[in-house]
Amino acid sequence: MRAMRTYFALALSDVRSQMQHRASFVLQTIGNFVASLMDALGIAALFASFGALQGWSLYEVAVLYGIVNLSFALAEALGRGFGEFARVIREGNFDRLLLRPRATLFQVLASRLEVSRLGRLLQGAGMLALGLAGLPEPLHLWQGLLLAVCVLGGVLLFLGLLLLQASACFWTLESLEVFNILTYGGIQAAAYPLDIYKKWLRDFFLYIVPLGSLNYLPSAVLFGKDLPFPVWSAYLAPLAGAAFLALGILAWRAGVRRYRSSGS
């Protein structure tokens, strides 16, 4: 409870600093919105040309797209501190965090709350709503809950990715651009049903960076598609996000341990 209070105190103070540069904040939000809008328009245009994608309709793909973008927008808004962590290390400000009586992970998480990610968030939510509106029957309550859990799992997974990227800074001292392949590439890949990909690519996004298990498996069950897995696996899938986050936390711990025995 106290941690929550401290989190809000810190995060809101970051929001206040963002609001001091209002014009730039507005531009970033719009830019964030337009960037993801272009991807969505691209998907819509492809469906307009080709009609369907291996048995998936535009509405169904919009749900996939919506889940993954909504998750990523939330994770990026919450975990922006990890995204910018390379600078903290490079400028030697990690010592400051170690001098305060709180877990470092908590402090980095609370240091930033990036409001401009509202752009992608609105866009993703819009696509999700559009996709759901196009379904032949309205959602049951349990289906809505499954969707919510999927988004939550996605947030955890993307936070895990951001955390891995930040943890790598303890060794490399700079941000590894290669992680952007996983995040942005992952969003691009998971915006479509995974069964359209070659097996190795599908397996990568099911087992290694389990993005697909967060939107593809549950959506496939929701829309009654054929799955190479038992149906119950879809309900467990969002747990993969939590597992991935746990991996990120382990990496972070190892990184901090290394930092504290090398001082740099």
């Binding site: 209070r5 401290t6 105190a9 810190l10 305060r100 009586p101």
Partner: peptide, 8 residues
């Protein structure tokens, strides 16, 4: 004030 929160 933030430090007051952090140090509880």
């Amino acid at each position: 004030d933030l430090l007051c929160d952090i140090y509880d």
